[in-house]
Design a protein around this nucleic acid. Structure first.
Lengths: 373, 373
DNA sequence: TTGAAAGCGCTACCAG
DNA sequence: CTGGTAGCGCTTTCAA
C-alpha cells in the first residue's frame, strides 16, 4: 500500500522503512496499517541516524559539512546516506534557514525568443550558483504580474528577477519596503529603485532610425511594442528624437501600436500598408513583430527591402536567417548578469546598487540594404 | 536593523512586528537586540491570531476555508489578514501536506523555440491548476538530467515533466519504484513505463521524406538531431524507411549528425555541401537546424529550393516567415496536456496510463516547392 | 566528539 | 464553534 504521493529520494525503500513506529515518546511500539500515525513518506534524517547508529544531530553535522565529527563516524554516515539514497528535505531546511535556494523569474512570455534566451541565461547562472528557478509568465498584464509576485513570495523564493509593465510600480514599492531582493531585467518600472539590467533603448532606437534615414529613407514608420512597457516607450522615444534631429516630420499615422507578438506585427504592418504614400521603411519594436511584418509584406506581393525596408530589435536567432537588420542586445548575458546580481544581493544581504546598461549594436543585413547582396 | 533577508509578504511591517517576545514558554519577556532569539522574519499565523484575538487554529481554519468558524470570526480574521498583508508560508504548509503545488520541468534547452513553446503550455496549464513550475535545462547531457531530477526531488516537487536522453532510463526506473509522478514529453525513454505526450516521429519523418521523393528528389540527405534522443533516432528511422520503401539507396555519407541546435545545422549542412554529387534535398531533424542549414546554403551562394530543397520539423514561428516546409507538431498543446496529465496523476494518486500521441501535419512552403511561388 | 531537545510556521487532532 | 498541542523534517543551541 505504498502511497503514490511519496516524496522521492531516488531510492527504493529498503527493508528499513517498512513500518514506522514512533519511538521518541508516547506512540512507541508496533503500529499496524490502520493506525492513524502517518507513515513517513520518504527516508528522513532519522532513518539515517538509526541505521548508522548515531543521533540525528550527527547526521545533520555530516550533511552540512560541519567539523566536530570524527572521521570514522562521518564516513559511516556518508555510507548509509549513499546506500539509502537519502537526500535532505529542502522544505524542512528552508523553514529553518529561511532560504530556499530558489529564485523567481517573472517575464511576459517565454514563447518570445528574447525572453527564452534571457531565461536561459538566468537558469544557467542560477544553477552554477546553486539556485533553482521558478518562472511565471504574465503577458505583461498588471494583474498577473502582481499574482505572480505574490505567489513567488508565498513560495518563499529568496529573490525575484522581474520584467514588468509600468503599472506594477506599487507592487515593487511594497517589496522595497521589506527590502526584498529584486532585480529588474530588460525593462525598468519608472520610479522603482530596484536596479535593472538593460540596454539603452532610447539610444539604440535612435541609432536604428538614424541608420534608416542615412539609407535615404524619409518616410519611416514605427511599430511599437506594448506601450505599457518602458521598453516600448523608450524605443518610440528614440525613434521620435531621430526624426526630429534630422528635421523629418513626425507623422502619427506612421506610428502603430503592437504588443511585441508576431501576430501584432502582421496586423500593424497591414495597417501601415494601407497608408498612402507607403512608408519606405519601418523600424519595428522587436524582431518577432518584424517577422510578422515580413509576412504581411510578402502577402501583399511587396518585397523587403525593395518596397519596404525593415529594421528590427533583439537579434533573435532567426534574424540572421531572415536577413533582418536589427539591434543586437546580449540576451543570454543579460539573464546571467541579472542572476548574478540578484544572488549576490541575496547573499550579501544588501540591495544591488545602480543599473547595468549593456551595449547594443546595429547589425546590418539584407532587410534594409540599399543594394541587394 | 531590519534584515535584508526578510521573507516578503507584500506588506510593510506594521507596529505589530517590532520585536518578538516568545510568550508560549520559557523565553517570554522583553527581548533586546542582542538576544539570541531569532526575530520572525515575516508575519506569521501567530501574529494574525494575536491581532485578531483568536487562536492559530482558528486562523488556520479560515486560511483553509474549513467550516466550523462563525461568520463573524471568519470575517474578523480575513480583515486582519488583509490589513497585514499576510500570506501563509508555503514551505511550512508543504512540510505538513507533503505537497508543494510545484512541479518540475526538465528540458534540454529553453532557447530552442520548440521547448520554449512547450514550456509555455506547461506553465499556463499549471497556473490554471494552481501549480508553479521550476525548470531545469540539461542540453540532453545524462549527468545534468540526473542532477536536475535529484534536485527537483529534494525540492519536494509534486511531480516532474521530463524530456530526456535515452540514457536516463535508470533514473526513471528509480522514480518508478517509488511511484513518483512523472510524465514524459516529446521523447520517451525506451523501456520506461511513464506515459508520454508526443508525436509519431517515425511516421512523420516518413511523411516528410516521402514528400520529398514525390517532389522528384532522389538524392535526399538527412541531418539528424542529437542521436542520444529517441526523437532523433525515430526521425532517422522514418527517413530510412521511406527511402527503402521507394527503392532509394541509403547513402551513409548523406546522413550527418547534428544536435538540434542551429549551430550544428550550419556545420552539418557545410558537410553535406562538400558531397558530390550534391544532395538535391535535405530532411532536417528540426527547424532550428534547418535555419542553420539555410544560412550555410546561402553562404555558399546556393539557393533554397532551387539548389537544395529543405524540409524541417517543429513548425516553430520562424518557419512560416522563412517559408520553410516543415512538420507541424502542437507544441503548446503538448505542454498543456503534459501538465494536465501530470497534475491529474498527482491528484488522483495514481500513475497516468498510456501514451498520448498527437497528430502532426506536413506544412508545405517555398523551401521545398517545385515551382517558385 | 556526541546527543537531547527546542523550535522554523503551519495543520491536524483532540478535547472542551 | 473554539483552542491547546503534537508534530512535518530539519538545524541549532546547550549540555554532557
Amino acid at each position: 500500500m505504498a502511497p503514490y504521493e511519496d516524496k522521492p529520494t531516488l531510492t527504493e525503500f529498503g527493508a528499513f522503512s517498512k513500518l514506522y513506529a514512533k519511538v521518541n515518546g508516547k506512540l512507541a511500539g508496533k503500529v499496524n496499517a490502520n493506525s492513524k500515525v502517518r507513515m513517513p513518506l520518504a527516508i528522513t534524517i532519522r532513518d539515517i541516524a538509526k541505521k548508522a547508529g548515531v543521533s540525528v544531530t550527527t547526521v545533520s553535522r555530516v550533511l552540512n559539512n560541519k567539523p566536530d565529527v570524527s572521521k570514522k563516524t562521518r564516513e559511516k554516515v556518508l555510507q548509509v546516506i549513499a546506500d539509502m539514497g537519502y537526500s535532505p528535505n529542502a522544505m524542512a531546511r528552508g523553514l529553518i534557514w529561511r532560504k530556499t535556494l530558489t529564485i523567481g523569474l517573472v517575464i511576459p512570455d517565454i514563447g518570445n525568443p528574447f525572453f527564452a534566451e534571457v531565461a536561459k541565461g538566468v537558469e544557467h547562472r542560477a544553477r552554477e550558483r546553486g539556485y533553482s528557478v521558478i518562472f511565471c509568465t504574465t503577458d505583461s498584464e498588471p494583474q498577473r504580474e502582481q499574482e505572480a509576485i505574490e505567489l513567488l513570495c508565498s513560495k518563499q523564493v529568496d529573490g525575484i528577477i522581474v520584467s514588468l509593465s509600468v503599472e506594477s510600480r506599487s507592487v515593487l514599492e511594497r517589496l522595497e519596503k521589506q527590502r526584498f531582493p529584486v532585480v529588474q531585467i530588460d525593462r525598468k518600472v519608472p520610479g522603482s529603485n530596484y536596479s535593472a539590467i538593460a540596454v539603452d533603448n532610447v539610444a539604440s532606437a535612435y541609432t536604428a532610425t538614424k541608420y534608416l534615414i542615412r539609407q535615404g529613407h524619409s518616410r519611416i514608420a514605427h511599430i511599437t511594442g506594448d506601450m505599457n512597457t518602458k521598453t516600448a516607450q523608450d524605443r518610440l522615444l528614440g525613434y521620435k528624437e531621430a526624426l526630429s534631429d534630422w528635421g523629418l516630420r513626425l507623422e502619427h499615422q506612421l506610428i502603430v501600436h503592437g504588443d511585441f507578438s508576431k501576430g501584432s506585427g502582421i496586423l500593424c504592418m497591414e495597417e501601415l500598408l494601407s497608408r498612402t504614400p507607403l512608408p519606405s521603411a519601418v523600424f519595428v519594436g522587436n524582431d518577432l513583430m518584424a517577422l510578422g511584418a515580413m509576412e504581411a509584406i510578402g502577402k501583399h506581393g511587396l518585397r523587403v527591402p525593395d518596397d519596404v525596408a525593415l529594421v528590427g530589435y533583439d537579434n533573435i536567432d532567426l534574424a540572421a536567417s531572415l536577413q533582418l537588420t536589427t539591434i543586437m542586445q546580449p540576451k543570454f548575458e543579460m539573464g546571467q548578469l541579472a542572476a548574478t546580481t540578484l544572488i549576490t544581493s541575496i547573499e550579501k544581504g544588501e540591495p544591488a546598487v545602480g543599473d547595468i546598461i549593456l551595449d547594443t549594436m546595429l547589425i546590418e543585413r539584407k532587410s534594409s540594404a540599399a543594394t541587394v547582396l
